[in-house]
Amino acid sequence: MRNLFLFIWRHHFIFLFLLMEAVCTVLIIRNNNYHFSAYLNSSGALTGSIYAGFNAIAEYFSLKEVNEQLSTENARLRAKTKYSFSVYNRGLFRIGKNVYRQQYLYLEGKVVNNSINRRNNYFTLSIGSEQGVKPGMGVISPDGIAGVIKDVSAGYSTVMSVLHKNTRVSVKIRKNNYFGTMVWDGTDYRKATLLDVPKHVELTRGDTVITSGFSTLYPEGIVAGTIGSFTKDQEDNFYVITLNLSTDFGKMDFAYVVVNLYGVEQQELENRSDND
């Protein structure tokens, strides 16, 4: 026993090194674990308020672009309101509570911190559990999909960006409804990869890719990107498609958290059939 202590004491530097690396490994694993709420991150009170303070200064530089982005979005939304449609056949259509139910609500948040240059990227939003944000909700930007809520504090939430190793978004090609999976290979923040689209499907460059609505994260029809280039894989029956992402992660100022009012119900039902 005494020899053991002597041995440890003689090499205490190496043992300290190993101990500290072990601590770091635990921290990294905790952080990567999706449902493990890590408290050492940028949604904390101190770090969140430092970022918010710095952002209050920095946001003036992009005011013009934000205004343009918001007014384009307003125009697009105005075109979708009831007043933009004229009734042309009163006998057949009836718009009312019985026909439509509200499934999605959106919470608007300001992006106070963002990264695009790492292998796994995150950004921070200035809304949190007080506004009703919960881990696992989808996040979209005015231009397209953006990520998934990873962790929330009272006033802030961290979002796992689409630019992440674990990203798997269920998407489909708008013109023919074939669906695939979108992943990010870590090279370029403007591009993603679309997998699992069968080889016999006809594709053209510039085809729009939208969310499929299969998962409870995003409503159907949110734009993910456009097809940039595609090759046929020699080994299997699927295309390898490069997507140009519609969201410019390099200059994201606002994002919307998607609240799916029937998400829990859908998940519970699906889990029940998985268990059988």
Binding site: C24, L27, I28, N31, A38, L40, G44, I50, Y51
Partner: peptide, 30 residues
């Protein structure tokens, strides 16, 4: 050992701000 502890703390501070768990701390300790 003092250098190592200080490295751990500066790495961890950067980690907390950039949501990287303990990656900067691990690199700094090395």
């Amino acid at each position: 050992p003092t250098v190592m502890l200080l490295s751990f703390f500066i790495g961890l501070s950067v980690d907390i701000f950039s949501d990287t768990g303990g990656m900067h701390a691990a690199a700094s300790v090395f």
